[in-house]
Simulated assay, not measured.
Amino acid sequence: MGIKQEAARLNTRMRQENPLVHNITNYVTVNDCANALLAIGASPIMADDTLEAADITSISSALVINIGTLNQRTVESMVLAGKKANELGIPVVLDPVGAGASDLRNKTTGKILEQVKITILRGNLSEVSYVAGLSVSTKGVDTSDKDNNKDARLVALAAAKKLCCIVAVTGAIDVITDGERVVKVSNGHPLLSKVTGTGCMTSAITGGYAGTKEDAFTAAAAGILSMGIAGEIAFEKAGALGAGSFHMALIDALSNLNEETIEEMGKIEEE
Rank of each mutant, 00 (worst) to 15 (best):
A132T: 07
G2N: 15
M201P: 06
K213T: 06
I118T: 09
A34W: 12
K107I: 09
I59Q: 02
K184F: 14
E263S: 07
S245P: 00
I24P: 03
L80H: 01
A101N: 10
S245I: 00
C165T: 15
M14V: 07
N148Q: 14
G207I: 13
P190M: 12
A204L: 04
I56E: 01
E271M: 10
M201V: 11
A34L: 08
D151M: 05
Q115A: 12
T119I: 14
L70C: 12
A62W: 09
N86D: 14
T202C: 15
A238Y: 01
G188L: 10
N149E: 15
G244D: 13
T202S: 15
T202A: 15
T218R: 02
A42P: 04
I251R: 00
A156P: 01
T119D: 11
A238E: 14
M14L: 15
V128G: 04
I120D: 03
T202V: 08
T29P: 02
T202I: 04
I173G: 00
E180I: 13
E52I: 06
I262F: 10
E180C: 04
G123M: 05
K213L: 09
A160V: 12
T206N: 06
G133D: 13
E87I: 01
I3K: 04
V155M: 06
A85P: 03
S144P: 14
V169T: 11
E6P: 00
V75Y: 02
G41L: 08
A220D: 02
H22I: 08
K150N: 11
D151T: 03
P19D: 06
G100T: 12
D178L: 02
A216R: 00
N258Y: 03
G98L: 11
D55R: 02
F217L: 08
D48T: 01
D48Y: 10
Y209R: 02
A54R: 00
L225K: 05
D55C: 01
G2D: 15
D215P: 03
Y209Q: 02
E87W: 01
K150F: 10
E17R: 15
T177D: 04
A81W: 01
L154Q: 15
A160G: 10
T12G: 15
H247S: 12
E236V: 01
L37Q: 10
A220E: 03
D147F: 08
I45S: 11
E259Y: 07
D151Y: 02
S203C: 13
E270K: 03
E114L: 07
A168V: 09
E236F: 08
R122G: 08
A168R: 00
N66D: 06
A249C: 08
